[in-house]
C-alpha cells in the first residue's frame, strides 16, 4: 500500500464501526491498528469480517489483496480503490 495516500474519512469511519463488533481485545481502533498483531484476527475471523465489509459497502474484496493489508488504513485504501474501480 502507498504509505502517503489517505483513505476517505467515510470509509475509515464505516470500517471502524464494523470492526467494533470484532474487537475482542478491547484495542483502541485507529487507522494504524493492525489486524493480526493488535486484534488477534485468525484466518476464519478475517473471512467473517470481510463478509460484513462486503455486505456493508456492496463490494467484492479480492483475496489477493490480503497479504498486503496489515492495518485498518490499508484496508480503507483498498476499499476506496475497489469503490473507484466500480465507478462509485
Amino acid at each position: 500500500m502507498n504509505p502517503s495516500a489517505e483513505p476517505s474519512p467515510e470509509t475509515l469511519a464505516t470500517l471502524v464501526k464494523i470492526l467494533a463488533g470484532f474487537n475482542k481485545t478491547g484495542t483502541e481502533l485507529k487507522p494504524e491498528t493492525r489486524f493480526t498483531e493488535d486484534l488477534n484476527f485468525d484466518s476464519l475471523v478475517v473471512m467473517e469480517f470481510i463478509a460484513v465489509v462486503e455486505d456493508d459497502f456492496e463490494i467484492s474484496v479480492p483475496m489477493n489483496i490480503l497479504p498486503d493489508v496489515a492495518t485498518v488504513k490499508d484496508l480503507a485504501l483498498a476499499v476506496d480503490k475497489i469503490l473507484k474501480d466500480d465507478g462509485r
Partner: peptide, 30 residues
C-alpha cells in the same frame, strides 16, 4: 493461496520453499 491479512512475507517464503523443494520448471496461477 494466501488466506490471512498482512502475511505477505510468510506466504512468499512458503511458496518459495515449495518451488525450491520441488524444482518446479513452471508456475501457473490466476
Amino acid at each position: 493461496l494466501p488466506t490471512a491479512f498482512g502475511r505477505r512475507e510468510a506466504y512468499i517464503e512458503q511458496i518459495k520453499g515449495q518451488l525450491r523443494s520441488s524444482g518446479a520448471r513452471m508456475a501457473v496461477g490466476a
